[in-house]
Design a binder for these strands. Structure first.
Lengths: 404, 404
DNA sequence: TAATTCAAGTAAATTATCTTATTGACAAAA
DNA sequence: TTTTGTCAATAAGATAATTTACTTGAATTA
């Protein structure tokens, strides 16, 4: 799926009965998942299919353990409908976050509950070694859980294949240039592997299980290895033509500002990123801060952290207005590897955001929200990717080239 | 279609045989349109449907005059396939561009050829008067052409419903705030009406008939009433949650720069727009330049125009890099109400664009292209909108609210 | 308490659409 | 001329939806 060259002609596939059924199964799963639990008639009304068609599909899904009964709902007149919900034990997905020196592994059940979280140090991040690590983890997970595996989501640092940006700084893996990671890993693991950048994975995670649950279009600013923008549009992640959409870390926000490994000066990432914060703290003789340290420093109102907050808010606010003007999302979610309290204060410090198309007075949502935060956020988002692939209805396409 | 509140839950519709057929018809029309002409077998391979299914659909479409035979292709062995192409006379669409003092009307045939272009002065742009004008135009067009009408595309100035941005400057129509224009006009005309901003309409026009013909994801910077960004992503226009995506005209690019009617200072639109150019020329005692005047001034290398070119290029280049970083399009197309030569020189003057995710060395396309230009560009794009609605396969959705 | 009403579930026949043979037509290559 | 590869058209089969009629269950009403 990943890295489709946008330049080949993509032709939408025609529907035959089999593909219709697949589509309808996805639609039913999606609508049930989003509503928690539903009766058959209700599903029929929502999907504009007949009750009979829904009955058949629900039976099939129950037979595959993807849906389960949750009792009858007593409401109003008529026969109380049998409610169905997604069966958490019906399937699981695995999420892997690859970083330059470690690897995070998570397992999610169908309802989005984490079943396992693990961080492992990794020395060699060459393709061979990464494959070996993932396969080992896959065996461990298979042994520990009996649910069938839907797929594996992998988060790797981007951007991909950009001169002057690749192989730069701490955010890229050596040996992965010009490699179709998704295909390679799918072959090697024998399971469908989806590869994304951390911000988009986090955004999909928010969409399925977090603040974006009922929001179909939002931007997600993600504090990970660098600073990324994930986007969900009409319920689907927005990847751009080459999978590099949302690469806002290296936008110049301060001309003649701090030097950046990418060769430019004053990149946003030099100010508003965890890496920049750690550097500042290091310079102030507070080296090697982990997640808990940051929370503590914030509680203590450490001046360096407050200074970083101020600077980050200053540069982030116009970027958020810019994102709003270009994408017109329902809201912008901030999340990532920072404690809740720090994100909250960052949002508070942005205060009066610049005018943008989002400056409506009767907004349903605030312009900026906090999303999931923590060390596992990206890996949990990664695990949400296969779920999204399997559960969400979409237009299937095929490239022209092979046939023409 | 337009102005769906993004916050209501959109549920994807299930597919039944009827909706499958509709989908497949769109897929066939789309693939034939994009390839010019194709044989049945070729279509079958591209769409992953069987020859028989395609034969039925093609027969149906020929019966409705949407496709037509274009003779047999003599190629290689075997029975030479009968080629089919979109029948230009099979249907037509109407495009309307509403401005504060005039209205542009265009008619396009199914192949995208303009059949009629007209500019009319308009004094009153209240909803009632606009409806009256469009209905009158509709009757004229119906009388002049016999092809069935697919729909009407209307371009109106945006952004919509934004405080501090609406009812500002020369770019908005009074009396249209808080009105669902698409629904209102659809009711009043008895034909499906699609409403878009000028940039997106132009982008759809490029996608169907222009530079974007074989590009499925691109950004389009449009010089219209203001400066707009249109986007086509995976072949579909990107509207954002509230239809205001791409509103880049009022992004501040020069802090403490020229004052803007929107209340800010240094908005991009104050430098890189036709309006700004006309103001500069007016100050230099060259008032009331029309399209031809601009072409002439450019040929004469008028210093004011050259100065504008320089300034516009300076402010536009970083914006293009920003757009690339956020959206990762295949290319960015520049078009609108400026002569080709001026757009070409503008592109040339941007020269070395800032580094972005688009800075790949082996690009299939240049980072910036020129699109359609001229006085009718927006209205032609508007006429492309209904065509897009009818011809392009898509995921149909319905809002949850009415049922739940 | 019993009849009525509304809504949900079930199971058949029916319909629409795609798929799978099978056969014939046509033209280039052997 | 025969063979071969491709397109076209016909008929029969398969899939998944709809339609229609009936059953089940609970709340309302007389």
């Amino acid at each position: 799926m990943a890295f489709q060259p946008g330049s080949t002609h993509q032709v939408t596939l025609g529907k035959n009965p089999e593909r219709s059924r697949d589509h309808n199964r996805r639609v039913v799963l999606d609508v049930v998942r989003r509503h928690g639990s539903l009766g058959r008639m209700h599903i029929a009304r929502l999907t504009h299919l007949t009750a009979q068609a829904i009955a058949n599909i629900v039976d099939e899904l129950v037979g595959e353990n993807l849906l389960m009964e949750t009792g009858r709902l007593r409401s109003g007149r008529g026969q109380p409908p049998i409610q169905f919900a997604v069966n958490p034990d019906g399937a699981m997905t695995m999420g892997i976050e690859m970083a330059s020196d470690h690897m995070v592994s998570t397992v999610l059940d169908l309802s989005g509950q984490p079943r396992s979280k693990r961080i492992m140090p990794v020395r060699d991040t060459s393709p061979q070694q990464v494959i070996a690590h993932i396969r080992a983890e896959l065996e461990t997970v298979r042994a520990a859980f009996k649910s069938p595996l839907l797929g594996i989501g992998v988060v790797m640092p981007g951007p991909f294949e950009i001169e002057g940006m690749t192989s730069v700084g701490p955010t890229t893996l050596p040996g992965w240039a010009n490699i179709d990671a998704a295909n390679l890993l799918t072959e090697a693991c024998g399971e469908p592997v989806t590869v994304e950048n951390d911000a988009n994975a986090a955004a999909v995670g928010e969409r399925l299980f977090g603040a974006g649950h009922s929001i179909s279009s939002f931007g997600m600013i993600y504090f990970g290895a660098g600073l990324g923008l994930g986007m969900v549009h009409d319920g689907a992640p927005f990847r751009g033509a080459f999978g590099n959409a949302g690469e806002i870390g290296h936008v110049v926000v301060a001309p003649r500002g701090r030097a950046c490994p990418c060769g430019q000066h004053g990149c946003l990432e030099r100010y508003a990123s965890v890496h920049a914060l750690r550097e500042l703290l290091c310079d102030a003789a507070v080296p090697d801060c982990d997640f808990a340290d940051l929370a503590r420093l914030h509680a203590e109102r450490h001046p360096v952290l407050l200074e970083w907050l101020d600077e980050a808010a200053t540069y982030l606010a116009p970027m958020i207005a810019m994102i709003e003007n270009i994408l017109d999302p329902e809201t912008v979610i901030l999340g990532g590897m920072l404690p809740d309290a720090i994100i909250d204060e960052l949002i508070a410090r942005m205060g009066q955001l610049p005018i943008s198309v989002a400056s409506r007075s009767r907004r349903a949502l605030p312009r900026v929200l906090r999303g999931q935060t923590g060390q596992y956020t990206a890996a949990l988002g990664a695990a949400a990717l296969p779920l999204f692939e399997v559960v969400t209805p979409k237009l299937e396409t095929a490239a022209t080239r092979p046939v023409e």
